[in-house]
Amino acid sequence: MTPFSYQRPERIDQAIALHGPQSRYIAGGTNLLDLMKENVLQPGQLIDINGLPLREIERTAEGGLRIGALVSNADLAWHPQIEQRYPLLSKAILAGASPQLRNMASTGGNLLQRTRCYYFYDTATPCNKREPGSGCSARDGRNRIHAILGASEHCAAVHPSDMCVALAALDARVHVEGTHGKRRLELVDFHRLPGDQPQQDNVLIEGELITAIELPVEGFASHCAYLKVRDRASYAFALVSVAAALEMDGDIIRRGRIALGGVAHKPWRLEEAEELLNGKRAEPECFAAAADRLLQGAQPLADNAFKIDLARRAIVRALTEAAGGTVR
């Protein structure tokens, strides 16, 4: 870890004003500190945002919820409003990390987790995300855990969050604030594909701070499922995860959402695939068709071809579970 300066502002505008090219905001620090210890990140300044007033969960005017960026993952998952109205989000959060990590990790920080690509974490190896232009070691290396969708020749990393997969399915929005004022982004547009700039995980511009996540009114509370497939029963990142949310009318799907984790540089959604669910009877053939459409164009690397078939099966399973009613 390299030496850094440390500030703890108490107002959002102070935090933003402090931010410079060498700065990082720190909240729970569950990922940032690891990255600093490994010298993957070497910020010259840490701006501790834990003193900012961003810990509330409030009703929005339209009836949704606004979640302060500093609400811990644990508090969010166990919040009565989240458990009742947005069980998909609660389940996704609890599928991730460990109780200790969820107690520390913040809502905003969860969005900003870096990939678990082995090469990103090892400074002795080339990695375009860590060191732009140095090359991608994963593409022809150990890539069992890497992307099958939306990757580029420059990067095959996947986004590791479970929470974001549920947020993507729920059409959540991200509130950010920076020197140029406030912005509101769709969560599905917040993370980006690697393209030729894999060092950019998301669309935040320098100094911008996530202040809140907003959930719309519809929470798909009665028919949702989060299925995470991983190499051990807990404390492992997803090989494939599926957030499935359905609005049912008897056994007819009125509206469906599917988001995938563990397969791309961002939570993966596709409207065309979801449209194949709408108005259909909830049965395996319909789910399989949607899965096929969602996975269209998937491109495996040497070690991860299994993910395509696995994702397809996981989507069908998750939609089947969701159609049967949310397991409480």
């Binding site: 082995y118 090892d122 002795a124 190896t125 070691s137 022809d140 290396g141 150990r142």
Partner: peptide, 9 residues
């Protein structure tokens, strides 16, 4: 990773 001769995980 045998190209690097290095343990990765």
């Amino acid at each position: 990773d045998h190209r690097l001769g290095r343990y990765m995980n």
